Computed example of a mutant assay.
Amino acid sequence: MNVVSQLLIALVAIEHLYILWLEMFAWTTRGRKTFKSLSPELFEPTKALAANQGLYNGFLAAGLCWSLLIDDSVWSQNVACFFLGCVIVAGVYGALTAQRSIFFVQALPAIIALAFVLLAR
């Protein structure tokens, strides 16, 4: 993979590591400031649900990081495509069911990264 696609994959992975931290460890503090559309009284009762979502974001980040560590370029691209595809599906679903901005924050960066991975083939 070329350097640009690797940088974009790394950025998407870093974003999902941030989401992991936010949802697993800072849901009732920083989460309130980030997710202003939710009423403040919902954060404490939804702490476990948010942590579960954060864990899944961590798996996405781990897969993207793994793709950057694979020596075989074909396998590296295949793994990157799979995990970027997962991020895209999750981002589109989130945009359709929760908040439209999720598309722009999660799905769009992954779409751009996937385009660069495919162009690097």
Rank of each mutant, 00 (worst) to 15 (best):
N2P: 10
V3I: 14
V4N: 12
L7H: 00
L7G: 00
L8M: 11
A10N: 01
A10F: 12
L11G: 10
V12C: 13
I14A: 15
H16N: 15
L17N: 01
L17Q: 03
L20G: 03
E23S: 05
E23I: 00
F25T: 00
G31I: 07
K33E: 13
K33I: 06
F35E: 06
P40D: 14
P40C: 07
F43I: 02
P45Q: 03
T46L: 12
T46Y: 06
A50P: 10
N52P: 01
Q53F: 10
G54W: 00
G54I: 00
N57C: 10
F59H: 02
F59P: 06
F59L: 14
L60N: 06
A61H: 01
S67V: 09
S67Y: 05
L68E: 12
L69A: 15
D72P: 02
V74W: 07
V74G: 14
W75Y: 11
S76A: 15
Q77C: 07
Q77H: 11
N78A: 04
A80Y: 09
F83L: 02
F83E: 04
V87W: 02
I88R: 01
A90N: 13
G91F: 04
A95W: 15
Q99K: 14
Q99P: 00
I102S: 05
F103S: 08
V105W: 09
A107M: 04
A110P: 07
I112P: 05
A115K: 03
F116V: 10
L118T: 00
L119V: 07
L119C: 01
